[in-house]
């Protein structure tokens, strides 16, 4: 227990002690925010999920009924997208899978769009990088809501795409499949999150020592092999972090589906919101959110484990 002794010594020394207190005061604001805004609501959510809603009052006796209901099987199956769900209450499960697929699609699209932008910024832009970065953030100068609404204007019945195509004579009546469906949600999400992904990928690319690439070329690598063997692996940590940064929050998003998703584009977040409000079943809403959180956490864990495994295998094969 050497750390205990050193701590003891440290605290007996008045200068060290002052330093320790300064450190404590420095983390206090963050700690207060974290406890009151994150830890406490989490505890409240967990507690709530073990209660039941009884009309207008909350029944505070401990029960696992909410969870039981979520996982209760049924003889009769409900089919959705070629899959059959043998569940009594299949809506959350269906919406969960749908949300995960939509988020994953948006995440992949975002990373695929952002990587070339980040690459260009890191390797091709030589001067005025700050100007380019500021240009990238311009969409953030307006609110998220406005940006989502502008997609409504672009994709809508009388929107930019439809009226443009009509005036060009390519179609004679507006396309209805543009808005109020999962695709519209995924397009909007991708656009909304691209900048958040460009920046971390840019940072991880910018950090790569240029002499690494020179050395790879000197050792016989073509431009493409250099990218595959040096740039891509060295930018992977930033890219993975960026992908998680999009995936995790978008799974639970309910604003975007509500505005551009229509009935076909609802996601799990929309259900949680409805459970808490219209359906007046907060305990069920809490249970659904917690299960969602758990599923996302497990998926992320699985993904990171896989990444570690791929890395090991790639190393072994070289």
């Amino acid at each position: 227990m050497s750390s205990a002794t050193t701590n003891g010594v440290a605290l007996r020394d008045p200068a060290r002690r002052r330093e320790a207190f300064a450190g404590f005061w420095l983390i206090t604001p963050a700690l207060v925010v974290m406890v009151s805004m994150l830890a406490l609501p989490m505890v409240a959510l967990v507690v709530l999920s073990f209660w039941t809603q009884d009309g207008f009052t909350l029944d505070t006796t401990f029960t696992l009924d909410n969870y039981r209901r979520l996982f209760a099987t049924s003889e009769r199956g409900v089919a959705w997208m070629g899959m059959t769900f043998y569940l009594e209450y299949p809506v959350p499960a269906i919406l969960m899978i749908k949300s995960l697929v939509m988020s994953l699609t948006a995440t992949v699209a975002v990373v695929l769009m952002a990587y070339p932008m980040a690459y260009f910024l890191a390797f091709r832009v030589k001067r005025n990088k700050a100007v380019w970065i500021i240009l990238l953030t311009i969409p953030f100068w307006t609110s998220y809501l406005l940006r989502v609404f502008s997609w409504k204007v672009v994709l809508g019945f009388n929107g930019a795409i439809n009226s443009g195509l009509i005036s060009l004579g390519i179609i004679d009546k507006p396309l209805e499949f543009l808005l109020y469906n999962p695709a519209a949600v995924m397009i909007t999400l991708s656009h909304a999150w691209v900048t958040f992904v460009v920046l971390p990928i840019y940072v991880s690319l910018e950090k790569i020592d240029r002499s690494m690439l020179e050395a790879a070329a000197d050792l016989g690598d073509s431009r493409w092999r250099r990218f595959r063997r040096i740039t891509l692996p060295l930018s992977m940590p930033g890219t993975i972090a960026a992908a998680l940064m999009v995936f995790i929050p978008t799974v639970g998003d309910y604003v975007t589906p509500q505005l551009v998703g229509g009935t076909g584009g609802t996601m799990i977040g929309s259900l949680v919101q409805q459970l808490f409000t219209k359906q007046n079943d907060a305990p069920m809403g809490a249970a659904v959110s917690l299960v969602m959180m758990l599923v996302i956490a497990l998926l992320v864990l699985l993904f990171l484990t896989l990444v570690g495994y791929w890395k090991m295998r790639a190393r072994r094969q070289g």
Partner: peptide
Amino acid sequence: TNMVFQSYAIFPHMNVEENIGYGLKN
């Protein structure tokens, strides 16, 4: 020609053997 760089430019995501064998793959 092959070069020894001033910063050495050792590839950080590889071990000694993989670094030395890097060019042999080509």
